[in-house]
Nucleic acid binder design. Structure first.
Length: 359
DNA sequence: ATGCATGAGGA
DNA sequence: CCTCATGCATA
């Protein structure tokens, strides 16, 4: 895979970029609960033949494994790459505070249809693979993995302001609520089309898609990397808004965020874009150099065979109980928490996929 | 571009 | 514990 990501190594953006951390803090998720799939029911059903399910799923996975190539067996490759403090050239990137998790907002919930990937029959494997394939999406531009710019990770989040849970009304009416008493995150610059009536709610997925596309184009035009955008956001001084990671910017551009998240981020990125283009006009280039160095986190690597098994289990029961998770973890020789997190992440992915498929 | 992880907030 | 928004580490 790998495309050619070459540009964006050191694109300095005219905008300021002091790595601050400023997470949007809020997380008002509320309605999602509405679509819970009868929890009590699943327990019973499962209890009845969990053994069978596990065996079936596993058997399928096993067959799969054989079919494919052998696996190197690496149950738990959690590397701890310590930070070798790469370089610490007085980078501004280090911000002392640390708080985590900002959350812009939550609560969106589309109609979740109870689609199931049918029964664990022989056709299971194919199905699994099918619905779990990673959407590659856009290929216009090369991977923008700014390798060189490792700047910006102060990874500290501050709890700027806790927002309150949102009201949960209809499926998609809530707008970008943000969490703060005052700050203005609303959609100020209306684009020219779309819902301009109310002022801040735009349940229009097409508009978002169009914006994401334009954003990426203009960002590239400015010669700014996704990571740069993320750290530069802190310089906008928007109350409640801090920097974001390259990951998030990338996901925004590729629409791989939840609809609500997209809606919440749009105004922010839009504001940055305007500011960036304005600054560029003024020719405010600053030869800044950053370097960052800090501790690293570990990232477990689940081998393909194990992953296939997990997918098989997931097809049968997306929300296994703690006991089931423990059983699966043991069979696959993975830590229970790793399995639990895997299921959580899988659920998120699935939701995202369903949504985009529906829209 | 994505996989696995953390954490806030909500039951 | 889950859901969600995010992020570090990586391919």
């Amino acid at each position: 895979m790998m495309s050619m990501n070459s540009k964006q190594a050191f694109s300095m953006h005219p905008i300021l970029h002091e790595p601050k951390y400023t997470p949007l803090h809020s997380s008002s998720e509320a309605i999602r609960r509405a679509c819970l799939p009868t929890p009590s029911l699943q327990g019973n059903i499962f209890a009845g033949f969990d053994e069978t399910l596990l065996q079936r799923a596993e058997a399928l996975a096993a067959v799969d494994i054989v079919t494919q190539k052998s696996h190197p067996f690496k149950p738990d490759a959690t590397y701890h790459t310590m930070t070798t403090m790469t370089s610490m050239t007085g980078t501004p990137t280090s911000s002392p505070a640390h708080l985590h998790h900002p959350s812009v907002l939550t609560s969106h919930h589309h109609a979740h249809h109870p689609h199931h990937h049918h029964q664990p029959a022989q056709g299971l494997e194919g199905d699994l693979l099918e619905h779990l394939s990673p959407a590659i999406s856009l290929g216009g531009m090369p991977t923008a993995a700014d390798v060189a710019s490792g700047a910006s990770h102060a990874h500290s989040h501050m709890a700027a302001a806790i927002n309150h849970a949102q009201h949960h009304h209809h499926p998609h009416a809530q707008a970008v609520n943000v969490h703060h008493p005052h700050h203005a995150l609303a959609a100020h610059a209306s684009l020219a089309s779309a819902s301009v009536a109310s002022g801040d709610a735009e349940p229009d997925p097409r508009e978002l898609e169009a914006f994401a596309e334009r954003f990426k184009q203009r960002r590239i035009k400015l010669g700014v990397t996704q990571a740069d955008v993320g750290s530069a956001l802190a310089n906008l001084k928007i109350p409640g808004v801090g920097c974001l990671s390259q990951s998030t910017i990338c996901r925004f551009e590729s629409l791989t965020l939840s609809h609500n998240n997209m809606v919440a981020l749009k105004p922010i990125l839009e504001a940055w874009l305007e500011e960036a283009e304005r600054a560029q006009r003024e020719k405010m280039a600053k030869p800044e150099i950053f370097s960052g160095g800090d501790k690293k986190r570990k990232r477990t690597s689940i081998a393909a065979p194990e992953k296939r098994s997990l997918e098989a289990y997931f097809a049968v029961q997306p929300r296994p109980s703690s006991e089931k998770i423990a059983a699966i973890a043991e069979k696959l020789d993975l830590k229970k928490n790793v399995v639990r997190v895997w299921f959580c992440n899988q659920r998120q992915k699935q939701k995202r996929m369903k949504f985009s498929a529906t829209h």
